[in-house]
């Protein structure tokens, strides 16, 4: 988390301290060192330039053009059309629907995931003494699995008739909905799966954060008559605040791009109820509308950047 850049030691090391080589030798060492450093950096820089920096810049350029799939072979027939792709996106009913769906997924999914992660972490940190690592392992396992594979599995768990989830609900006398077939329940179904798959990451980070909560504070508060819940609310939670913000933002960045879940489970349906911004961007790409797809992808990028910036500001204010 900490990205502090400590410069002093390395510059001292590079030029040598007192009793070191003469200025002349030092300069030639520095030259050799610089050359060696760039040799070491070169392979990364080349690949990074071609496969990250160039596409990021090119994507921005493409978003101002009418590039289509057929222009691949004749790159000079592309016209610059200014902001047309962006104005089109903001009046594209389907894309606006995708923005609302994505917001729904993020605004419900992130708090739910954080809540589960926090509950699991607190229970494992202080509540129990035995089998802690077994529980931790169990809760974390879904994180490492392919979303595509778990989406295939959850598609069956969420079936109306012979799905596991509705069977379990049936034990309690609840008649479960046709999750993925009902436009009102499809998104809750996907959110449930996303929370299940992702809360383990937050739990691990919270567990690390809880190590920094001094137990003495809890003891003092309990002598003063504070119960468990009050101590959680007034000691643990405020101290954990930066960690909670960090987990919120990383989870949010992931959820803003959700793609595999609707791609596999619902294909965006029913009635576009699970169409995400990423899925719609991919579809436009599939139709050959490269310029338009690039503009849509930049809108997702801006959303991610804005949320990250807000997070850093919040962190600075609170720590």
């Amino acid at each position: 988390m900490s990205t502090a850049i400590e410069r002093a030691p390395s510059s001292q090391r590079a030029t040598g301290t007192e009793g070191g080589p003469s200025p002349k030798r030092r300069r030639s060492t520095g030259l050799r060192e610089g050359r060696a450093a760039w040799v070491l950096a070169l392979p990364f820089c080349l690949l990074f330039l071609v496969f990250t920096l160039w596409p990021v810049a090119q994507s921005l350029f493409m978003s101002f053009t009418d590039t289509r799939a057929k222009d691949l072979r004749t790159p000079f027939s592309v016209d610059v059309i200014g902001l047309e792709n962006y104005t089109r996106a903001l009046s594209d009913e389907t894309f606006l629907r995708a923005i609302r769906n994505t917001a729904y997924f993020v605004l419900v999914g992130v708090p739910l995931t954080i809540l589960l992660a926090l509950a699991a972490a607190v229970a494992l940190d202080r509540g129990i003494t035995k089998f802690r690592s077994v529980f931790r392992l169990g809760f974390y396992t879904p994180v490492i699995t392919s979303i595509v594979a778990v989406a295939v599995v959850w598609q069956y768990l969420l079936r109306d008739e012979f799905g596991l989830i509705n069977t379990v609900l049936g034990w309690f006398g609840i008649d479960g909905p046709n999750w993925l077939g009902d436009a009102n329940w499809s998104m809750p179904g996907l959110i449930m799966m996303a929370a299940w798959r992702n809360f383990g990451t937050g739990m691990i980070i919270f567990l690390a954060g809880l190590q920094g909560v001094p137990w003495a504070l809890h003891e003092a508060a309990s002598i003063d008559g504070a119960n468990t819940w009050q101590r959680f609310l007034h000691i643990t939670l405020p101290l954990l605040r930066p960690v909670i913000l960090f987990v919120s933002v990383t989870t949010m960045i992931g959820y803003l791009q959700f793609f595999e879940e609707p791609f596999v489970m619902t294909n965006g349906g029913p009635l576009d109820s699970t169409l995400s911004m990423s899925l719609y961007t991919y579809r436009q790409f599939g139709f050959g509308n490269y310029g338009y797809a690039a503009a849509l992808s930049y809108i997702i990028f801006v959303a991610v950047a804005v949320i990250t910036a807000l997070q850093f500001r919040a962190l600075r204010e609170n720590t």
Binding site: I5, T15, G34, W38, L53, Q58, L256, A294, S297, F301
Partner: peptide, 27 residues
């Protein structure tokens, strides 16, 4: 190591840490 352009390079690389895959896939 010390080398010219070190700080700029580090900033550039870290600046792309959060770029979503969906932003680059078309180009």
């Amino acid at each position: 190591l010390e080398f010219p352009g070190k700080r700029a390079l580090f900033a550039l690389v870290m600046g792309t840490l959060l770029i979503p895959g969906v932003v680059t896939f078309v180009p």
